[in-house]
């Protein structure tokens, strides 16, 4: 420890830089607008009750409200009743900054829907990728057929193409079919993962042929072998691929930004956050950072719980 102090010193400086934006994001999601403006209150803020001005503005008593409230405040002048009603509104609209920020995150925009879209899109992409890639990988690894080398060569060539790079022609084709602003547009370009095919093929190559011959003896069809024999042996590789795929698509911003325009029903979490930023004024830093925290948290928590698997999955591309 004493010998290594300089290493720790360097790494701790790095840690501060790496964690600074996370610290700020979570801290701002706790603080009131005033505290954010003045830069005070430490990490958690002072959590003093604050009044939500928009909420009060919405409850500004009008003539009808005063008339309705006359029974409760008998014998008082209109101005007094109005003041009393305003005081009530303010009392109802005051809350702790942390509650304010997180409740605004869910009420200002349909964040639950965005999160749900994120789950639908990432899970569908992964399932379709697996459905397409596993049989192909099995055929390439274990079946002998004319043209196998050519197909594998094509897979290797397609590994060169980053899907983001061909976003424009993909968008044109989807637009021609009238598919923009649909779930299909969010999912279709990612249904083929050549990397998944390549990865699973490499893995299947290591599975002994005897296992497959035994299954054939039992009268299993080749398709049954893929799902009932190969899939169970491939769980670790598939899990790593799942993490790779899910992290990439949960965090993806470029593609949804292109194919979803205006239709909020289809927004994925990053698009929702972007929209928040677009119309946010100064007082909305808190709720916005709460939204950001909510979007980032699921993957970070999963990562902290299963670090080794995640690092394996994300660096999968290192196995190429």
């Amino acid at each position: 420890m004493t010998k290594n102090w300089w290493k720790h010193l360097i790494l701790i400086v790095g840690t501060i830089v790496v964690l600074a934006p996370f610290y700020m994001m979570v801290s701002y999601s706790f603080k009131s607008p005033g505290e954010i403006d003045r830069g005070e209150g430490g990490f958690f803020g002072r959590q003093e009750m604050m009044v939500d001005p928009r909420c009060v503005a919405l409850r500004q008593p009008n003539r009808a409200d005063i008339e309705a409230a006359r029974t409760r405040f008998t014998g008082q002048a209109d101005t007094e009743i109005q003041a009393a009603l305003l005081a009530e509104a303010e009392a109802d609209c005051s809350m702790r900054p942390v509650v304010f920020n997180y409740s605004k995150a869910f009420t200002e925009a349909p964040l639950i829907l965005y999160l749900l879209n994120g789950v639908i899109v990432t899970v569908s992409i992964f399932l379709i990728q697996t459905l397409v890639a596993l049989p192909a990988a099995y055929a390439l690894a274990k079946l002998k057929f004319w043209g196998r080398e050519a197909v594998f060569g094509l897979v290797l060539f397609c590994l060169l193409i980053p899907v983001h790079a061909i976003a424009l022609p993909l968008y044109i084709v989807l637009a021609k079919f009238g598919l923009t602003n649909t779930y299909a547009a969010l999912i279709v370009p990612w249904t083929i993962s050549v990397f998944g095919i390549f990865l699973m093929r490499q893995f299947f190559m290591t599975v002994p042929d005897d296992l497959i011959d035994a299954a054939r003896m039992d009268g299993m069809t080749e398709f049954a072998i893929v799902w009932r024999v190969m899939l169970p042996t491939a769980v670790p590789a598939l899990l790593a691929f799942a993490i790779f795929s899910i992290v990439a698509h949960w965090n993806d911003y470029f593609w949804p930004r292109i194919v979803v325009t205006g239709n909020r029903e289809l927004f994925t979490p990053p698009l929702g956050l972007r929209e928040f930023k677009g119309d946010g004024d100064g007082s909305f830093f808190g709720p916005m950072m709460a939204t950001a925290t909510i979007i980032v948290t699921p993957l970070i928590v999963a990562f902290l719980l299963a670090q080794r698997r995640f690092i394996e999955g994300i660096t999968l591309s290192g196995m190429k």
């Binding site: 790095g14 840690t15 790496v18 964690l19 934006p21 996370f22 700020m24 994001m25 992290v247 949960w250 965090n251 911003y253 979490p269 990053p270 956050l273 972007r274 930023k277 916005m288 950072m289 950001a292 979007i295 980032v296 993957l299 970070i300 990562f303 902290l304 670090q307 995640f310 690092i311 994300i314």
Partner: peptide, 18 residues
């Protein structure tokens, strides 16, 4: 290692706003 890997996992758009 864990700490330095966090930015890789986090949604880049959210971190850009931060």
């Amino acid at each position: 290692k864990t700490i330095y890997f966090l930015p890789v996992m986090a949604t880049l758009l959210a971190m850009a706003i931060a």
